[in-house]
Write a protein that binds this DNA or RNA. Structure first.
Lengths: 244, 244
DNA sequence: CGGAGGCTTGAGGTTTATCAAATGTGGTGG
DNA sequence: CCACCACATTTGATAAACCTCAAGCCTCCG
């Protein structure tokens, strides 16, 4: 179990952006990967720690969390199956943020020595993995734009558009619907709002017939209008396939 | 002039994080680099374009700009000498943001073919360049935390702390003072505020004796108190030197 | 069936935006 | 050198967005 492991979500995410040779896929499959599961709420990587391996999500949703001295927190990214959550830990020694499980999780861990060796022996594969990291950066830029210049309502709408496309990529969403076992209070920490305001803003989107969001699921009722309202431009997700 | 060019700021920024061999420095120096200058306000890279080269700043300050449909804009990053502004354009085909000159600029451009070749032949050098890109991502996370959970005043204070350390790195700042020919309205677009509020918030920092900011210069009068007020933790700038 | 946590709603307060106008600053042509 | 212009900074007044506190309800789970 420590070596051969089904990392299909990662492969799918990579192949959506680039072409991988059989040899490259074999290198990835070989790993070695270490499987690990977490309960909702668990701390996966601690802020300030110096990890020696990085993890890919197979199931569940994580958040990157920056904590302030008064205990409040900001979630700077959400991650879904296929995402390389902390690839950057390979190059940035000390974690500038923590990683927390927002739902029950399954993750696959790979050592930094292995990743370094991939960069030495398989330059194209390493560039493709780096591409995921750069997409991650583009998503962060989109969040900055939402936080700085969009209304709370547009920001929530934008987040749902983004999450749907990212989840659909690996099959975790379809028909404009996806499982979403994350509390409004957690979303508040991602959007820089209070949980009360997230609730009101969600009701606004519901009232306009754009989404439903109940229990542990979200459905987008009118994709085109949601996209238009959020001014959502998917360019930053880099969904076009091209050999690099 | 197209080949041999003084890219000292980049080398300094890299060597602050890692050790470069003479061979690696020679590869970097060889480029080929293409020198280019811009006036303040010039568009350096257009949002939506597909550049075939990336640029390093030798002099001046640029901003990454995301424009909204109503003409408002959010600046998602500021860049200073030594920064590889759009290294990610190598891996992300279409620019999700524009790059604009906020002051008069001198830049050095290197082709993506060259960078790709570096990743094939000089894996460690490529990882070191990628490290700059990952630091860039960490800075974006810090901005997200500031936008989402800090007061406008703390956000401005945090920005000055960040900029001072980044400028000091390549010698563009010293003695807690640096040239800063950027308008309050531009800073407003970076902090997600109105220019009126930036002005009020700046006066607050002045009133507390933490900074001066006049004409085209900033001086930090009390670094320790400014850091404490902003809850500034420089971990995200990855200023510790270590061989990777 | 009881408790805990998440969701919803209301009231009142704070932060920040917007609009408008006055003042300061640097550059340019006469 | 001065008059003038464009643009940046500053100040004031009002409005909108969002927060905090508080309470009630709902859902899930033991």
């Amino acid at each position: 179990m420590a070596t051969s492991l089904d990392i299909t979500p990662l492969i799918r995410s990579l192949e959506r952006r680039d072409t991988l040779s059989d040899a490259e896929k074999a290198v990835l499959a070989r790993g070695p990967w270490r499987l690990k599961t977490y309960a909702a709420g668990a701390e996966i990587v601690a802020q300030g720690s110096e990890p020696k391996e990085s993890c890919v999500i197979l199931e569940g949703i994580t958040g990157r969390v920056i904590r302030l001295s008064d205990g409040r927190r900001q979630i700077t990214a959400l991650h879904v199956p296929g995402d390389f959550v902390d690839f950057h830990a390979l190059l940035l020694r000390v974690m500038d943020h923590g990683v927390e499980a927002l739902t029950p999780m399954t993750t696959a861990w790979i050592g930094h020595n292995t990743l370094r060796q991939i960069s030495e022996d398989h330059a194209h594969l390493f560039r493709t993995l780096s591409t995921l990291s750069e997409i991650d950066g583009a998503i962060q830029r989109a969040w900055i734009a939402c936080l700085g210049r969009r209304s709370a309502t547009a920001n929530l709408a934008h987040l749902f558009c983004e999450l749907y496309l990212r989840l659909e990529l690996t099959g975790a969403a379809a028909n404009f619907s996806f499982a979403f076992a994350v509390t409004q209070s957690t979303i508040a920490d991602a959007l820089g709002l209070s949980s009360v305001h997230v609730n009101r803003v969600a009701q606004e989107l519901r009232g306009w017939g754009l989404i439903t969001w109940e229990r542990h699921g979200v459905t987008i009722l009118d994709w085109d209008r949601l996209v238009a309202f959020a001014e959502f431009d998917p360019t930053f997700l880099n969904l076009k396939h091209e050999r690099r």
